[in-house]
Amino acid sequence: MTLTARDRVLRGQSRWGTAALGTVTWLVAALFFFPVFWMVLNSFKTEAVANASPVLFFEPTLERWEAVTEVTRGLLGFSEAFTNSFVIVIVSTLLVLVLAIPAAYALSINPIKNWRDVLFFFISTKFLPIVAAILPLWIIARDLGILNSQLVLIILYTAMNLPLAVWMLNSFFGEVPRELIEAAQMDGTGLFGQIKDVMLPIVAPGVAATALLCFIFAWNEFFLAVQLNPVDSSTVPVWVTSNVSTRGNFLAKLSAASTLAVLPVVIAGWIAQKRMIRGLSMGAIK
């Protein structure tokens, strides 16, 4: 087999190629990271500095962080929004796992006849743009009396993430050798024990990855939150936009709000990543 120049670069056999590839990778990473970096930087500036033409050196201040966490009567406050978000996101993510794990287990370990169709049905629920469903959703929520409640978002975020979680967990479960489950059956383990004692410990990294994605999607969800729950019990993304003011540019304050909003996701990602790496390097199924 002859190697093309591209193969040699990808295999790390060409020193210049490797260097070029590394440079490009760093450039792309910097390109993606820069706005985040700029946002964090802006949050430590005063409004005057932030809205003037960009400077590299400035006197950092926490003044805007204090401003953004100030409580204004009648408006959604920082601590309320974070409490709401944490409750809604964590409860919905747990619900997703509780529902998706048995579903994925059934589909991968003891598949029914048309299990592919079932999987396709799950993912097909995501084909409809959410905008098209918002009116009926709003009417149902109003009739049930759950508009402006944490409950409506918990239900919708669970429904939103469930297909994705079933899909992901199904593929993780599928990688566990059938014989391990059969061995557990022979060892006298019931269905619940098979999941709890054998399957979950082995696919823990996959479950962590799935939970992380559900967490991120629910945390960042804005459209449903702003439509169905715009007032007191709303979430962090709604709170961030409440810092956009018609009275002028408050870029530094908005940056501080945004930085606060992304922190939990960064922390959750960091925790899940450690688990995922440890799990993947376990790789000891055979």
């Binding site: 050798p177 014989e179 391990l180 059969e182 061995a183 410990p201 000891a284 199924i285 055979k286």
Partner: peptide
Amino acid sequence: FQSYALYP
């Protein structure tokens, strides 16, 4: 089992 199927 042939693959032993030990719990890893």
